[in-house]
Amino acid sequence: MTLPVGRPAVLPVVAVVGPTGSGKSDLGVALAQRLGGEVVNADALQFYRGMDIGTAKLPREERHGVEHHLLDVLDVTEEASVAAYQEDARRIIDGIRERGRVPVLVGGSGLYVRAALDRLEFPPTDAGVRARLEADLAAGGSAALRARLRAVDPLSADRIDDDRRLVRALEVHELSGRPFSAFMPRREYHRPAVQIGLAVDREVLRARLAERVHGMVRAGLADEVRRLAAAGLRDGRTASRALGYGQFLRVLDGTLTEAEAVEDTIAATRRFARRQLTWFRGDPRVAWLDWQAPDLAEAATALVARAAAPILEG
């Protein structure tokens, strides 16, 4: 099957997913060029202005004229929100399609990818209600709160094994009148979509991630962290914990040497990549391609064409 030339709006939303360091950004650009598309970022840390080196944000010259959305939209002092991202990403995706172009979602933040693609409803929140429930927890213990939850949501009461989520489940029920379990995500696309995963050789990726971190240091990661610290990085709950940034803040504080920060960042990045693989491998809808295949862009384009076939025939 060939792609519908001149009819990109009938194509599904394309998502490129997989672990950090697997080449998602480059494939996203290649697909956008082939399909007449625009890239929508789904890497939570690339939302932040100034966090360029440590997040491997694609430099403008390597975007090859492809429009990128949801990069550099937050200050480092702001907290990323999946619910807010869902609203922004869907609005942007709809706008891209209205322009007759193809949205190409690119990123490894699994929950953000699902927020953009799936029927995923976020339950309400209220700081006052949560504070009251936390006070009840401190006064009466988790057993009393679990008994209250079991009376209104026995499924969640049996599943939840930590106090933070216990409080959250009661908060959701009080605010919505619905059980917390009713908000569990389903693997059901909000709009037609195809997910392309980059399958990696784990040992090769381990070595690549180590070299990637060393390359970030050579490119000036320490100076980037120093500049961002002056802009309030330590006050950002999300940004300050990012891989590499938290470690190099400790270098500035004198509690880690640069060599120790590098090794800690490498180890943390490898653990993160394993978690990403586990997340995306758990989704049977992801179609996997060899990350180092010489015909990767062609194979990915063919996957999009196959996913588009039912839409074109419908």
Rank of each mutant, 00 (worst) to 15 (best):
V10D: 02
V13C: 04
G18M: 03
T20F: 06
G21Q: 08
S25Q: 05
S25G: 13
D26C: 07
A30P: 00
E38Y: 05
A42H: 04
F47T: 14
I53A: 04
I53P: 06
T55L: 09
K57P: 06
E62F: 15
H64S: 13
G65C: 05
G65W: 00
V66Y: 08
D75F: 11
V76Y: 03
A80G: 13
A80Y: 10
A83T: 14
A83W: 09
A84C: 06
A84H: 07
R90N: 09
R90F: 09
E98Q: 15
E98F: 08
V106D: 08
V106R: 03
R114C: 09
D118R: 15
P124Y: 10
D126E: 09
D126K: 07
A127S: 12
G140H: 15
A144W: 01
L145A: 03
L145E: 04
A147D: 12
R148T: 04
L155R: 14
L155K: 13
D158F: 03
R165G: 09
L166D: 08
V167I: 07
E171W: 05
E171C: 05
V172E: 06
V172C: 07
L175Y: 09
L175R: 09
S176Y: 10
R178W: 08
R178V: 02
S181T: 14
P185A: 15
E188A: 14
H190K: 11
V194E: 03
I196K: 05
A199T: 10
E211I: 14
A222H: 13
L228Q: 05
A231S: 14
A231C: 09
T238M: 00
S240K: 09
G244M: 04
L249S: 04
L249F: 04
L256V: 10
E260D: 13
A261S: 10
D264Q: 14
I266V: 15
R271P: 00
R271T: 11
R271N: 11
A273C: 08
R281A: 08
R285L: 14
R285D: 11
D290E: 12
P294L: 12
A299E: 12
T301W: 00
A307Q: 01
A309Y: 02
A309V: 03
I311N: 02
